[in-house]
Design a protein around this nucleic acid. Sequence first.
DNA 1: CCGAAGTTTCAAGAACGACTGAAAATTGGA
DNA 2: TCCAATTTTCAGTCGTTCTTGAAACTTCGG
Lengths: 198, 198
Amino acid sequence: MPRVPGSKTPPDDAAALTAAQDRFIEVWGQMGSAWGISRTMAQVHALLYISAQDLCTDDVMDRLDISRGNASMSLRALVEWGIVERVHRRGDRKEYFRAEPDPWVMFRAILRQRLKREVEPLLASLYEIRDATRHSRADAGSLATEHNRRLESILNAFSTLELVSAKFIGPAGEGLLQAASLLASIDHDPEQQRRTHA
Amino acid sequence: MPRVPGSKTPPDDAAALTAAQDRFIEVWGQMGSAWGISRTMAQVHALLYISAQDLCTDDVMDRLDISRGNASMSLRALVEWGIVERVHRRGDRKEYFRAEPDPWVMFRAILRQRLKREVEPLLASLYEIRDATRHSRADAGSLATEHNRRLESILNAFSTLELVSAKFIGPAGEGLLQAASLLASIDHDPEQQRRTHA
DNA sequence: CCGAAGTTTCAAGAACGACTGAAAATTGGA
DNA sequence: TCCAATTTTCAGTCGTTCTTGAAACTTCGG
C-alpha cells in the first residue's frame, strides 16, 4: 500500500521500520531453526526483541500471522528459556511480554538452558556407558581398549567444555567474556568485520 | 542371541562392546538432532568415531540399518564438515571412512563450518538491515531509534562472538583452549564433574 | 458467585525434512 | 575399450515436528 504523496499520515518511515523488523524477524527465525529452535519461536523472540515494546499474545498473533495456540506455546517457551519475561499493566487484564534487551544476558541464559537440557544428560549417559564397559575383562583385544580410549577422550572434552561454559554463565562470566574479547581482538582492526560482510 | 555357555566363540565381551557402541550411537544421535544436525548423520559419525576403525558404506548401512542412499549422503556430508576423511586401501576398490579421533580438532572443524554457514550470513544480513534503515530521517520517533540501538547491540555481540570463535579456530586455538580450561578449572576439584553426573 | 476476558491445552491435520531404492554415473582393472 | 564393482543422485514416500482451532480452564471484576 503505497503512501499518498503529501498525505498527512506519518511518512514511510513507519513502513520502512516495519520492513526492517520483518527482515530481522525472518533472519533470526532462520538462524534459530539452524540451531534447533523452532522457527516460529525464534521469530516471536525476534519480534519482541526488535520492536522494543511489550506485546501481548494478540499483538504477536496478528503481526506474525500465527494461531493463538502457537503464540501461547512459543511465548511460554521463551519465558522458560529465561529470555522473555511476563509483564503486567495495572488496570489491564492482559499479559504482556518483554524480551531481554542485553544480548549477552540472553546468550548466557540460552547457554545455561542448553547445558542443562542437552549437555548434562549427554555427559551422564557417557559416564554410564563408560562404567558399564569398564568392568569387562582387561583387554579382550585392542578394539575394546580403543573404544574405551575414545570414550574417555570425548568425556574429557565435554567436561572441559562444560567447565568453561559454567564459568561464562556464572557471576564471573561477564569478566571472562571481556577478557576473551580483548584477547580475541588483539591485532584486529575493529572495522575489519564490517568489510568482510559488506 | 544369548551365548552358548562354554562355547568356543569369544565371550560376551564382543556383545558388550557392541551394546556400548549402540548406546553411544544413540546418545550422540540425540545430541546431534538437538543441535540441528540430522540424527542419522550424527549416528554415522558416532559409529565411525566409536568403532575406531575405517568402515565402508556397506558396513555403515548394515550396522545402522539405513539405506545406501542415506549412508552415502551422510558420509559425504561428514567429509564436507571435515570431521571424517576418505581412506583408500590398495587392492581394494571400496572407499573407507575414518573419523577424526581428536575431539578438539572435531569441535573446531564443526565450529568453523557453522560460523561460515550460519553466523557469517546472519551477520551480513544484519549489516544490510542496519544500513537500509540508517538513512531514514533522523529520528522519526524513539521507536526507530530504539530499533537501531537494538540492532547495533546484537551486531556487536555477534561480531565479538565471531572474533572469539575465530581465535579458537585459528592456529592459536589450541593454546586459547588450554588457557580457558585452566582458567575455568581454578578452584574446581577435577573429579567434581563425575559426581555431578553419577 | 457469576460471567466475561484471557490463557492454556491437545487432538487432528498440515508442512517439512529425512529416507528409500532403483536408475544413472563413475571408477578402476583386465 | 569394456565390464563389473562401487558410488551418487533424486523423485517419491514416509515419519516427525509444527501448527491450528476449538474446547477447557483460569482469573478477576462486579
